[in-house]
Design a binder for these strands. Structure first.
Length: 497
RNA sequence: GUCCCGUUCGUCUAGCGGCCUAGGACACCGCCCUUUCACGGCGGCGACACGGGUUCGAUUCCCGUACGGGACGCCA
């Protein structure tokens, strides 16, 4: 039997990195075992679901290159099936009508309300299954329903016994029936609820392995109960440890902002493969300890058994521009930028330059070679794609800023440099051909002639040509910028004013 | 409140009774390389939450405590 797994997000916001990791693990498992990876949008909460969110989820998966098989499923489209299943359980006596009027809950304080209620019931010793309508006679129930009285449909959780399942990650799980309340299957407006919908859809889609966040672990018992009532086999279950904020709390948009949104990583210059690689390392460790893994290697090494049980902390520092996200994520990204095949990097740099109006069509044409060479030269010290338009601006435009610190350190500190560099410009102007070697020879000869250290001219030139104090070898910069631009920039008065 | 889950360097983790003087990666620090900054190389700092068992021997197994997380809805 081929494995079938699904990623089933609810479209109530951007794609959270925790959800993205769940998607990744499902996808890896499917690709590893030759199974199918399906996508289901759980849009049954029409109040909060948006098309925009659905689009962002699909875009996010595309960005991470997690392709899904078969048609996208919208859970809302299956509502009639969910309802029919509930009717069936009702008819079979495995569920019952609850005529208790619906309680109103303010959406903001639900969590507190729920635990409050649970606490109170606990203290009073109320049984979870003591609903007064649980044992209402069929006749009376039918009569009241026929009379138009509103009712919710609840699953009749058996009197005594327990549910059990073997979680692939967390091991054997047991829960006594007495701890599970008669859960609502159908709302009084006949709207099917989550636990019912997931089970029906998973059955319908032939899901063999449910891989999802650990926050669903205890609720899984309820779903097992539904599978059993329906007489359907329970799929294999694997729950994933959660990704927490640095304070060990929940990672949420409200509290932590854009750092938890997948699109942020795309917008801030992450290479998709790099972020995917990083995500895979959160809660899972490859054998051999090799951490930079291609898509193929990830698939080859992945296994559900290799997933850890402890929650992982996503380590970032709020309000620190350099540490805006996890250090290791940044490192993985720089590793990719630095070592990935240049042909794969070029289109990404192109998009980045284009977005910043630094792109020229010649880079794709006559200057293709120059462009590749330049990108290859500067990528060594970059962390994100953004750096190509930021720190790298001087390589693609004559309009760039001078870093104050660099100007003070490499130029103003030695006032003679203003004239010395003009002299160097005159000298370089005569160099033919102009390349790394000849530029170096000319500069060193000029240093000798004028009796100054080559380093003084090198550092001064770097700042004149790039506005910075750091960067590639000066002679490589001369070569890449060419004689004309190099000479012109050396003669510039801008940094001196 | 009840139930469930977890706890190895600051962070991600390896470890599935002796190979552990607890390994790797990121971060941090130092040295080398380099007339810049990175990369790279070498080295340093740095952890088995605590207490009981079991065992010839516990990071590894069991129990308890502490701490953290999750769940408990006519949300998903």
């Amino acid at each position: 039997m081929t494995n079938r797994v699904r990623f089933a997000p609810s479209p109530t916001g951007y794609l959270h990195i925790g959800a993205a990791r769940t998607a990744l693990f499902n996808w890896l498992f499917a690709r590893k075992t030759g199974g199918k990876f399906l996508l289901r949008i759980e849009d049954t909460d029409l109040q909060r679901s948006t098309d925009e969110s659905t689009r962002s989820i699909i875009e996010g998966l595309e960005w991470l290159e997690l392709d899904y098989d078969e048609d996208l499923v919208f859970q809302s489209a299956n509502a009639p099936k969910h309802r029919a299943a509930a009717e069936r359980l009702l008819a079979e006596g495995k569920a019952y009508r609850d005529f208790t009027p619906k309680e109103q809950r303010s959406d903001t304080s639900v969590k507190e309300d729920i635990s409050e209620r649970a606490r109170a019931q606990q203290a009073e010793g109320v049984d979870q299954r003591s609903n007064p309508f649980r044992n209402l006679s069929k006749e009376e129930s039918d009569a009241r329903a026929a009379a138009g009285e509103p009712f919710a449909v609840r699953l009749k959780v058996p009197e005594s016994g327990q549910t059990r399942f073997d979680d692939i990650v967390y091991g054997p799980q047991e829960r006594s029936y007495s701890e599970i309340e008669d859960l609502v299957l159908l709302r009084s407006d006949s709207h099917p609820l989550y636990n019912l919908s997931v089970v029906i859809d998973d059955i319908e889609m032939g899901i063999t392995h449910v891989i999802r966040g650990q926050d669903h672990l205890t609720n899984t018992h309820k779903q097992v109960l539904i599978y059993e009532a329906l007489g359907a086999p329970v799929p294999r279950l694997a729950h994933l440890p959660l990704i927490l904020a640095p304070n060990k709390g929940k990672l949420s948009k409200r509290k932590h902002g854009e750092v938890v949104s997948l699109t942020t990583y795309r917008d801030r210059g992450f290479v998709p493969a790099a972020f995917r690689n990083f995500l895979a390392l959160l809660g899972w460790a490859p054998p051999e300890g090799k951490e930079i893994l291609s898509k193929e290697e990830l698939i080859e090494y992945f296994s559900l058994e290799g997933i850890g049980r402890a929650n992982a902390i996503f380590n970032f520092t709020e309000n620190d521009p350099r540490r805006w996200t996890d250090d290791k994520a940044l490192w993985v990204n720089s590793e990719y930028i630095r070592t990935m095949p240049i042909e794969e990097l070029l289109p990404m740099v192109k998009a980045e330059l284009r977005a910043n109006k630094l792109w020229r069509e010649e880079y794709d044409d006559d200057d293709r070679e120059w462009f590749a060479k330049t990108v290859d030269l500067i990528r060594q010290r970059y962390f994100t794609l953004k750096d190509f338009s930021g720190q790298g601006r001087a390589y693609f435009s004559d309009d760039f800023d001078f870093d104050e610190t660099a100007v003070n350190k490499n130029l103003r500190k030695e006032p003679r440099l203003r004239e010395l560099l003009k002299g160097l410009a005159d000298k370089l102007e005569t160099v033919e051909p102009f390349n790394t070697e000849t530029a170096e020879a000319a500069l060193r000869a000029y240093a000798e002639e004028t009796g100054v250290k080559a380093g003084l001219l090198i550092n001064g030139s770097r700042t004149m040509l790039t506005g910075q104090s750091v960067g590639p070898s000066m002679f490589e910069i001369f070569d890449v910028l060419g004689k004309e631009a190099s000479v012109e920039r050396l003669r510039s008065g801008i940094p001196w004013s």
